[in-house]
């Protein structure tokens, strides 16, 4: 039991990231409110970034910005995940903006952000 506990404590960031991922994933699938869906998407993406960042962390080292001209690999953490997180964040911002624009457009037309109501209204409109 203590062994498992210490394992859990050691991997706490990864475990927490995956729990968050599950929360985001489930809400993205099941929420009917579109704004909540967008929030869920952001939770999901942030959890992936947390996981990514935790892959690059190394105990007791500094952020990868050269200080005093010291370029020793044992001084800094892994810079690659940080760079990938940057890229990922920009992608996620763009997708959120696009998603929000879609929702705003639908809200203007149907005055609601509940997706099931929108589907019913859209079906009615198409039948006319």
């Amino acid at each position: 039991m203590p062994a498992l506990l210490s394992e859990i404590i050691n991997y706490r960031f990864e475990i927490f990231a995956f729990l968050l991922f599950g929360i985001g994933f489930m809400n993205l699938l099941l929420q009917k409110n579109l704004i909540k869906k967008i929030i869920a998407f952001n939770v999901m993406d942030s959890s992936v970034f947390l996981f990514l960042a935790s892959q690059g962390f190394i105990d007791g080292r500094a952020a990868p910005i050269v200080v005093d001209g010291v370029t020793d690999v044992h001084r800094y953490i892994n810079p690659i995940p940080s760079g990938l997180v940057l890229t990922g964040i920009v992608v996620s911002v763009s997708v959120s903006a696009f998603f929000l624009a879609l929702v705003q457009r639908l809200y203007k037309r149907y005055k609601t952000v509940e997706f099931d109501e929108i589907m019913v209204l859209a079906k009615k409109e198409a039948e006319k």
């Binding site: 999901m44 990922g88 998603f99 879609l102 929702v103 639908l106 409109e125």
Partner: peptide, 22 residues
């Protein structure tokens, strides 16, 4: 109306897919 609703569904499913891929 149809295309906007279809786009939202498409986008949600695609995002799930790319989340898993990432």
């Amino acid at each position: 109306a149809h295309t906007t609703v279809a786009t939202i569904r498409y986008l949600v499913i695609s995002l799930l897919g790319s989340g898993l891929f990432l």
